[in-house]
Amino acid sequence: MMRLLKIVVDGLMLFKEKIDIDFYAEQRVSGDNNEMVSPCFGSIYTNNVMSIVGINASGKTSLLKVISFVIEFINGESINNIVNKDILKETDKVIIEAYFYDTNNGVCKLESEIIRVWDNEIDSRYVVRAEHLWIKKISKVKSKKDLLVFKDDQIVRIRDNKAEFLKDDTSIVLSLNKNKSFYLKDLIGHTNVNLLRMIGNFPHELISFLDPSIENISFDRKTGESKLKFYNREEIMVANPMLFEQYLSSGTIKGINIFINAMMVFEEGGYLIVDELENHFNREIVATLVRFFMNKNVNKNGATLIFSTHYSELLDEFERNDGIFIIRNRDGISVQKLSEILTRNDIKKSEAFKSDFLGGTVPAYEAYMELKKVIISSKVEEE
C-alpha cells in the first residue's frame, strides 16, 4: 500500500507561489471527527475527503491537474505522456517534492527537478534533470514534526543521467514501486463531456438511487448490445454506450460514471479526482458520495476523494478544516488551507465563504454593482 502525505510544487507559471498540499491530517484526530480520516501508521492519519473551493476562474481545475500530474509522475509515467502535462505550459523549471508512505519501505521523500528542453525552435519537451530519493523507517517518526524531516544519510538514490537506464522523462522512483503504485481515477476530463464512459451490468441499487424510473440496464458481452428498461415501458436496445445520453438524464450518466469509479477506488484504497462535483447533481447525491468516503464500513481501505466545487454548502459536511483548500486568483493562483484562516468553530464554513470572511471567495462587490447597473439600464436586442 502507498499513501500520499504531502506534495510541494514550485515554479509553475500559473501559480503565484509555491503549492503546498497536505494529504495527512494536520489537526488532532479525536473520537468525534475520525470518520474523515484513515489510519496510515502510528499517530499519522490521511484525509478521506479533500475539497478545493473557489469562485469561477480561481484555478480549481489547475490545482486538481497538478495533483493528478504528481501522482502519475510518482507512478512512473513518462512526463510527456501524462494527460495533465499542460499544467507545465510555459514553465522552464519546476521542483516537485512528494512525500508518501510505502508499507514495504517506510516514509519516502522524492525531490525532482523538471526542466523544459528544446528539440528545435518550435518543439520542446520536459525531462528530469536532477532527482533525490530519501527513505526512513516509521520508527524514526515520533511525531508529526518528524514526518517531513529527512537527513542526508537517508538518501537511498541520486539520479545519474549518464548511467540511468530510465527514460529521461521518467522518475527514479519507478525502481521503488514496480509492483505497486497509487491507484488513481482521474475524472477531470469528464467535466464538460458528460457521456457514459463504461458499460456493464451496473448494480440495480445504484441505478434506482440515481433514477427510480429505470428498472434495469444490462449488457450482453456476446453481441456488445446494451438494454435499457424503464418501468411500464418497452425495453430499449442501445447499440453504443454513447447513445445513452438520448435516454438518460445528465445526472444519471454522471452518477454512473462517478459512483462506479468510486467503487473501484474503495476496493483499491486509491484516489478519485472529480472537478466541479456538483455539476448535474442535486445536493443529496453530492452529499451521499462525500459521506460514503467518510464511512469506514464503505471506505474500508482509506480511499481519498479529491474534488473541486463552487458549492460552499458542501463544506458544512466537513467536521475538520484541514482537508479544505481555498483557492484564489489575484495576479496568479494561490492556495491556502482553511484550517490556517478559520480557527473559530462558531462560524459556519459556508457562511464564511459566502460572506467573503475568508477573502477573495466571492465576486468583487464593484463588479456586482457594475453588472447591476447594466442589467437595469440596458436593453438586449435579439437579431
Rank of each mutant, 00 (worst) to 15 (best):
E284F: 13
G269L: 11
A303S: 15
K300V: 02
V274T: 07
N295A: 07
G270P: 00
V274L: 06
F281R: 05
N295K: 07
R291E: 14
G302R: 06
L272T: 07
I273D: 07
K296G: 00
L272D: 09
A303L: 00
T304S: 13
N279C: 01
G270E: 02
A287W: 00
I273V: 15
E276I: 12
N297W: 06
T304G: 05
V274A: 08
G302N: 03
N295I: 02
E278G: 09
N299C: 08
T304Q: 10
T304C: 14
D275T: 05
N295H: 09
F293P: 01
F281D: 10
V290N: 07
E278A: 02
R283I: 11
I306C: 05
G270Q: 02
V298N: 12
G302A: 03
L289C: 04
V286I: 14
G270H: 07
M294D: 07
G269T: 02
N299A: 02
T304D: 06
M294Q: 14
N282I: 05
T288A: 11
E278I: 05
H280M: 09
G302T: 05
L277W: 10
L272V: 01
N297C: 04
E284A: 13
R283Y: 12
R283E: 15
G269W: 06
N297P: 01
A303E: 04
N301K: 15
E284N: 12
N301L: 10
K296H: 15
N282F: 14
F292N: 09
I273E: 07
K300S: 13
N282V: 02
E278Q: 12
G302D: 03
L289S: 08
F293Y: 13
N279K: 11
E276S: 10
M294C: 14
M294Y: 09
N301H: 09
R283K: 14
N295W: 00
T304E: 03
T288V: 05
N297G: 11
K300E: 10
N282H: 15
F281E: 04
V286W: 05
I273C: 09
N301V: 02
L289F: 09
M294S: 12
L305T: 06
H280E: 15
R283F: 11
E284K: 13
A287N: 11
E276L: 12
G270Y: 12
Y271S: 04
V274Y: 06
E278D: 10
D275W: 08
G270R: 04
K300G: 03
V298H: 02
L277I: 15
N297K: 13
N282K: 12
I306W: 00
K300H: 10
F281N: 06
I306D: 04
N279W: 04
V298M: 15
M294H: 06
T304F: 00
G270D: 05
L289A: 08
